[in-house]
Simulated assay, not measured.
Amino acid sequence: MTAPTYPIETPRLLVRPFADKDLADMIALYAIPEVLRYLYVGKRPDAEVAKSLAERKAKTALNTEGDKMILAIEEKASGQFVGEVVLVWLSETHRSAEAGFIIHPAFQGQGFAREAILPLLRFGFEVMNFHRIIGRCDGRNAASARLMAKLGMRQEAHLIENEFIKGEWTDELAFALLDREWCALQG
C-alpha cells in the first residue's frame, strides 16, 4: 500500500482519511449551490452522500493505475471540516496523475486549498514518482484557475464548450505540472 502517513499535518490543517464523523459536514457542503456550481454532480439525497462517504473512507492509497486518494481537510485549531483533496493515478505508463480540491465557501480565499493540496503534490512527485500531475476546472471557476497557477501549474488548454453539464455547454481549463518543474519550485 502506497500512502502517506496520516494525518498529514500542515501549519493549519490535518489532511486525513474520511471518517463517519464527516457525514453531516459532507451533506452540508454538497448542499451549497456555490460549491455544486462547478461540479458534475448536483444536489443529492443524504443517503447518496452517505454512500459517497463510505466510498471515500476506502480511498486512502495509490496501489495501481485508477486508484484515488480522497482525503478530508480539517482545520487544526477548530476541528472544522474545510473540504477535500484528491489525487488520482491516471496512467502507470505515462506516470501521470490528477489533483483536485473542494473547499467550503467559509474557508475559501484563505490559502487552505493550497496548503492542503501541496502535500499531495509532494507525495505524487516524490513518493509515487509521477512525471506529470494535471488539474482541471470549469472555465468560469476563476478561483480554481488562480490556485493552480499559484501552485506552479501552467495552463495548457482552454477547451471551448467541450462538456454539456447540468443543461449547459461549459468550457474547461487544463493545467499541468511536470516533475522537473516541481523540483525547480522546491529550490
Rank of each mutant, 00 (worst) to 15 (best):
Y40E: 13
L36I: 12
V49R: 11
E9V: 15
A176D: 08
D25C: 02
L14D: 09
K59C: 10
T64R: 14
G109F: 03
T10E: 06
V41S: 10
A31Q: 15
G152Y: 02
G111D: 04
L90I: 11
G109W: 09
E126Y: 00
K21N: 09
S78Y: 02
T60V: 14
A58P: 08
I134P: 05
L173A: 12
L159V: 06
P7M: 01
G100A: 14
T5E: 03
F125P: 00
Q108N: 08
R12S: 09
G66M: 06
E55D: 15
Q108M: 09
Q110N: 12
L173C: 08
I70S: 07
I73Q: 08
I165V: 15
L23F: 12
D25N: 05
R146V: 08
G42D: 15
G42C: 15
E181M: 07
L173H: 05
R132F: 05
F175S: 07
L121R: 06
A174Y: 12
A31K: 10
V35A: 04
E115S: 13
L90Q: 10
F123G: 00
Q108W: 05
A99T: 11
E75M: 08
L159D: 09
H94I: 08
L159E: 11
L36R: 10
Y6R: 13
F18H: 13
P45S: 09
I103P: 02
V82D: 13
K43S: 08
F125V: 03
A58Y: 10
A97P: 01
N129W: 00
K150R: 14
G111L: 11
R136E: 13
R114P: 03
I8H: 00
G167S: 05
G187H: 15
W182H: 01
R12C: 06
M128C: 15
V88A: 07
Y40D: 13
S91P: 06
D67E: 10
S91D: 08
L177E: 00
E163Q: 14
F107S: 05
I134V: 09
K51T: 10
R56A: 05
T93W: 10
S91T: 12
G135W: 01
A19G: 04
F112I: 10
F125R: 06
Y40I: 14
E98G: 00
P45L: 09
P105F: 05
E168G: 12
I165F: 06
F130D: 06
P45K: 10
K57G: 03
L62K: 00
A149L: 09
Y38Q: 04
K68F: 12
L53C: 06
I73E: 02
A116G: 06
R12F: 03
E84L: 06
E126F: 03
N63W: 01
E48Y: 13
E126R: 07
P17N: 06
R12M: 03
Q80E: 15
S78T: 13
Q186K: 13
L29F: 01
A143L: 11
I165Y: 03
P7G: 06
W182Q: 02
I160A: 04
R12A: 08
W89T: 04
D25G: 08
G135C: 05
S96I: 00
A99C: 14
A61G: 11
K68D: 14
G83H: 02
A61Q: 14
A3Q: 14
Y6C: 07
D171F: 08
S78A: 13
